[in-house]
């Protein structure tokens, strides 16, 4: 009890840190993931190749390694002085975008081919067909795997704490170094994560019910 009350402002900062890095990298992952999925089903071979390379590279690299590159190599070479929060959010967002892309691609393949043929017959371009006809119908199928992916992202954000981003796990590390009881520390940390992940799954359950497509 005492740990939380004595250090509540730090805890709050950590919780908000986890929440904001989760939200920012989720947005990055979702937008990039959909774009890359579009590349992977595109009729243009170079785009397809780029999409495949993106997914292969990012999905198969350990996240810690990505963070290392993001925190130590990127600022040296490309953007000196970029905040650790932004660097962390980008690393996490890029990593997760590979998983989002594959989930979206699997959703795209569940939409009957005739839907895309009808759209193309009306004179729609490839991107219009994808945006207006295929993706909206794939959304419902993609929601359950996306929900898992974003929950994993929330928990993966803990790794950013090791690179001095303010977030929940960092709060635990700081206080356990000061000699506080580790069990109650972990209890509060776990509760913080649960609030975020339960909210996520609730939102996704709601979306699933809303977006039912009748065939």
């Amino acid at each position: 009890m005492n740990v939380l009350l004595d250090h509540f402002s730090d805890f709050r900062a950590g919780f908000l840190g986890t929440l904001s890095i989760t939200v920012v990298s989720s947005v990055i992952a979702l937008l990039l993931g959909i774009l890359i999925a579009g590349f992977r089903v595109s009729p243009v071979p170079p785009l397809r190749f780029f999409g495949t390379a993106w997914v292969t590279l990012l999905r198969n690299t350990p996240l810690t390694l990505l963070f290392l590159v993001s925190f130590f190599v990127v600022p040296e070479i490309l953007f000196p002085g970029m905040s650790t929060f932004v660097l962390g959010a980008i690393a996490l967002g890029l990593y997760t975008s590979a998983f989002v892309a594959e989930a979206v691609r699997s959703g795209v393949s569940t939409v009957p081919l005739g839907q895309a043929e009808a759209a193309r017959s009306l004179g729609m371009s490839f991107s219009q067909t994808l945006r207006l006809v295929v993706l909206p119908q794939a959304t419902r199928t993609v929601l359950p795997p996306l929900s898992s992916i974003f929950i994993a992202l929330t928990k993966n954000s803990a790794i950013a704490g090791a690179f001095s981003v303010t977030e929940l796990f960092g709060w635990q590390k700081l206080l356990s170094d000061q000699g506080y009881d580790i069990v109650s520390l972990f209890f509060w940390v776990a509760l913080g994560y649960l609030v975020i992940t339960f909210t996520l799954s609730g939102v996704f359950r709601l979306l699933e019910r809303r977006l039912e497509v009748a065939r």
């Binding site: 005739g114 839907q115 043929e117 009808a118 017959s121 909206p136 119908q137 009748a214 065939r215």
Partner: peptide
């Protein structure tokens, strides 16, 4: 294609 209409065996109306 916009000038060439197409009607399919399986209708292919946009389900959503």
């Amino acid at each position: 294609r916009a000038d060439v209409g197409m009607v399919f065996q399986s209708f292919n109306l946009f389900a959503h």
